[in-house]
Design a protein around this nucleic acid. Structure first.
Lengths: 238, 238
DNA sequence: CGAGTTCTTGACAGTGATCAAGCGACGTGG
DNA sequence: CCACGTCGCTTGATCACTGTCAAGAACTCG
């Protein structure tokens, strides 16, 4: 195991607004720090958890970037999401007490471990935390509904446009640029998430670039014309 | 509003094993009946709730069959799931206090309304109920992961095979035949769920029929060779 | 610096979409 | 009870989008 552990303090974490402690008062925050028992570092390429692992904790991402993916029995891989700082992963494990997907760090990362039993104990005590947990899970359900719309109804250009807009919007909410980003995943991983082959992703990026909508060099992306992207994502509205 | 309301008793409901009250003792069951405050009938074609409606309750399906679907702004529809007796719908509404999808009855149905505030109150009191609610939501997340695999990686025949196997398996768990079923949805709705056009669904059914794998006449389906279906769904394993 | 990975681009192929026509089932009203 | 209209389903012909295969370029990292 290449991961180390750390002591923790939610109260001075700069992700307070995005992560768990939304709306908690200081007493509640103290309690929350009890459940975030330790941190764990995960190096790029390493697994935070994998399919079949016993489920014990949810993980709040402090730094870094993850993908979650499932494999079918015949070896096909489907990326089910990309997660960044402030987001919570591991909720797939609750149903069966075992994780059903792999979580892979796409860059060196640090996560806060939150034993689920403690979350349940504490959320029985604090309705505001209980509500927060329910919202987190519901948000994930709704996100996946949106992905189903992408995969079921959209063409390649629409999927890629939606992907870029979603990424940059989430990064912006974390204080990063609204127009520039660095992709942390390969074309193949993007393709897997979007139900496309890596060549199609690459070609679509090239086309957007030729059309002056984005500037792209390897993992670096600059969005030159966000309105054009939105128009591609949501054609009829315009 | 074409729906009526009824008094309720979980304790003698024949869906006890599948629905909410799993593992509750009789005292807890009494409490549960308090939260299932009333039933509601929904006629075929009617909406149980629609996108934008204020979220107040989860609904346990007592009888009948539903689809849930979302529409993009430009009018494209994506069916996100089909739900049958014993299953719970409405969890999409928790995040934003508004539903983000439509729930349409595909046959006359009856649902038990469970105000979410009561569920939260009671699950603070009863850890077993709390756990059950968490599992329900996690199960939905995992289900959607599986749909993403279908939509992202599978070919038309594999999707249709997976769809039939999933339906018949859920029906069997409810005491119905393992080999016969009546589809409650149109080819178009199946196609929307599977990311295919209705013609492709129809052609795939016809092909399965020619190959002697199923017998199909309109909405009636008989599975003649379940192993062949499984082989199509999961090619490499064989 | 070099090996391996990732990305781009081209040529071609195939799956499923689109368009179109006709059939069959079902429900309603005469 | 039958006729008719509507909706859903099937099937054929053709097309387009994306996948596949291949080669080479660019980048990364030890």
């Amino acid at each position: 195991m290449n991961s180390e552990t750390f002591k923790v303090a939610c109260s001075n974490c700069n992700l307070r607004e995005i992560c768990m402690p939304v709306g908690l008062n200081s007493e509640e925050l103290d309690k929350l720090e009890e459940i975030v028992e330790k941190r764990r570092r995960v190096k790029q390429g390493e697994l935070l958890f994998s399919s079949g692992d016993t489920f014990t904790s949810l993980y709040a991402i402090r730094t870094g970037f993850f993908k979650t993916c499932i494999s079918s029995e015949d070896g096909r891989e489907q990326v089910t999401g990309f997660q960044m700082a402030g987001e919570i992963i591991g909720m797939d494990g609750i149903v069966t007490d075992r994780h059903s997907c792999n979580a892979v760090a796409l860059e060196d990362a640090e996560v806060c471990m939150m034993p689920f039993a403690s979350i349940e104990d504490l959320s029985r005590e604090f309705p505001v935390l209980q509500r927060h947990v329910h919202k987190m899970m519901s948000r994930e359900i709704v996100r996946e509904n949106g992905v189903m719309m992408l995969l079921g109804n959209m063409r390649a250009e629409e999927r890629v446009a939606a992907f870029l807009l979603n990424l940059v919007q989430r990064l912006h909410a974390r204080g990063y640029s609204q127009t520039e980003l660095t992709l942390r995943m390969t074309r193949e991983e993007i393709g897997s998430y979007l139900g496309l082959k890596l060549e199609t992703v690459s070609r679509t990026f090239s086309k957007f670039s030729e059309d002056g909508i984005i500037e792209i060099k390897q993992r670096y992306v600059r969005i030159l014309d966000p309105e054009a992207l939105k128009k591609i994502f949501n054609p009829q509205t315009y």
